[in-house]
Nucleic acid binder design. Sequence first.
DNA 1: TCTTTACCTCAAGTTAACTTGAACTCGTAT
DNA 2: ATACGAGTTCAAGTTAACTTGAGGTAAAGA
Lengths: 146, 146
Amino acid sequence: MKPHEIMDIGKVSKMSNLPVSTLRYYEEKGLIQSVGRNGLRRLFDANVVERLALISLGQIARFSLDEIAGMLSPSGSNIDRKLLSEKADELDQKIQQLSAVRDGLRHASVCKARSHLECPKFKRLLKLGNKGVFRKRKQFIEKQPK
Amino acid sequence: MKPHEIMDIGKVSKMSNLPVSTLRYYEEKGLIQSVGRNGLRRLFDANVVERLALISLGQIARFSLDEIAGMLSPSGSNIDRKLLSEKADELDQKIQQLSAVRDGLRHASVCKARSHLECPKFKRLLKLGNKGVFRKRKQFIEKQPK
DNA sequence: TCTTTACCTCAAGTTAACTTGAACTCGTAT
DNA sequence: ATACGAGTTCAAGTTAACTTGAGGTAAAGA
């Protein structure tokens, strides 16, 4: 393990293509850490760039920053393998559905039916992706029944 | 085409499992339409449920409501096939990346390496999904250079 | 030395997609 | 007749994930 390069926030920003404001925000949220300061200025180890790539991947997968934080540095010391496995399963579901949507779009782009809602092929796709479509919408704070 | 059943908002809510507030919101945004009123009460044709399923699919695919609106009822009369095809391509890209993430998670859930950032397999996956990871973040209103 | 330039903090604003609350109107069951 | 449940409007609040702005500091180059 060679001592990694140390960079200031501007360089990290350039390498990751993330605005500095985002990097500060991520640090505040605990997603990344700076290794120290030079005066006021944050100093980052180069490996933060990799971590940021991971974070971005997580975001593509549409995990929230909190979920990502949970996966990267869980409560204890090491990663929660069970959680990861569950997330992978969730993702797999999502991929199935996305594939259905993609096929639906693909088809709709060439289909002659007036309305896609009238097209039997499209309807079939709808059913296909339909499992779980109308489920678990995000909730706000739940009321406690007094 | 038999005359479809006509329902009030509560029934639509039950069938789609969407809160009535969401249905009103969608109507306001032009994503769905009521076929009329009975006094104050909105009346919906049963086919709205199918449309809502489409909308939910679109959301799973992480299109914004505006994009979905664009795909369902575009500017003119009929659907913009080119747009759909483009969206399908975008989706396909996203599916690739999600698959990479899923594999990454799957692997991480069994990998022995101390830190996943140190695991070569994981790093490889990172690179794989990496194309486009650090790209096109959402922007707010852009400043005009005066 | 001076000035640019990059950095800092902290509070407040932004956006999408909804939800919540208050105050009101109906149709229907009792 | 009346009370209840389900609907309505409209304004304001919520959440995540950032961004923007004001006002200040400090390292590096001319």
